[in-house]
Amino acid sequence: MMMDLEGSTEKSADFTNTDETSLLVIIMDSNPAQRILRENPHVLTQCVDSVIAFANAHLMQKAQNKLAVMACHSKLSEFIYPGPGKQLDVRQIDGQYEVFTLVEKTIKQNLAKILTSETSTVITESLLAGAIAMALCYIHRINRIKAPGLKLNSRILVVTGSGDSASQYMNYMNVFFTAQKQNVVIDVCALDQHLSLLQQGCDITSGMYLRVPQMQGLLQYLLWVFLPEPPIRQKLVLPPPVKVDYRAACFCHRELIDIGYVCSVCLSIFCKFSPICTTCHTVFKIPSLGVKPKKKKLKI
C-alpha cells in the first residue's frame, strides 16, 4: 500500500530544476605585479570583461542566484560587488538586463577606484589566502541570515595569474579546511603558472582546478568548466581531477620527502634526525639505537 505514495508524478519531474540557490564569490587577482599584467597591461581589461560576463552568466542561470566579486590587489583585498556603500542607481542604456548592467558598472567603478589609489610599482605577492578568508566570512554571514529551510550552495572561484607562495601556506591550509567544513567548494582558474597549493585546496574541497592554456579563450573556459554548479557537475563531462601530490616538504631543505621526522611539539618536518628543533627550539632525546619501540607488540 505504501509503495506508490508519491503518485504518478510527471515523467519529466526529475529533470527539472531544483530550488537550490547558488552563491558564487569570485576572487579576481588584480595585482599589477602578475607576470602577464607586467608584460601586457591590457590583459587586465580582457580578464575583467570575461569575469563580468561570467558573473552575469551565473546570475542568468536562476533568478535566485547570488553573486559577490572581490578584487585581490597588491596591498589589500576588497569586495567590489556588492561594493561598500549604497547601490548605484542604474537605468538601462541598451538591451542588457538591468541587473547585469548594475553588476558591470559596479565592478568597473570599484575596480577603477582601487587601481587609481594604488600606484606603487613594488612587486608584491597577491595575498589570495586572505581574500579567501574574507570570502568565507561573507559566505558564513549569508548562511546565517538566509531564510530557514533554504538550501544554499556556496562556492568560491579564484581567478589569478600569480604564483603561489609557501609563505602563505598556513593561511591557505586554514581556509581550505574551513571551506571543507562549511561545504564551500573552491574552484581555481590559473591564468599563468601552475598553482600546486591552490590545487590542493581544490582537491580538499572537491572543486575544479584549471590552468588556462591561452588567455584569448578565457570566457569560454570559464563558462565551460566553472559555470556548472557542483551538483550539476556530475552530469557533465569535465576535466578529470588530477592526482595531487600531498607529500610534505621538509622544513630544512624544502624538498619533497617520503619518510621524514616530525617534531612532537610543533609538528615541523625534517628529512634527517637532528637533536634540536629549528622551529620551536625543543631539545630531543636521542632515540635508543635509532629504532622506535613497537608499541603494538608490547601490550598484551
Partner: peptide, 8 residues
C-alpha cells in the same frame, strides 16, 4: 619531546 619518524 622527540622526533617521530613518519611516512608520507
Amino acid at each position: 619531546s622527540s622526533l617521530i619518524k613518519m611516512g608520507f
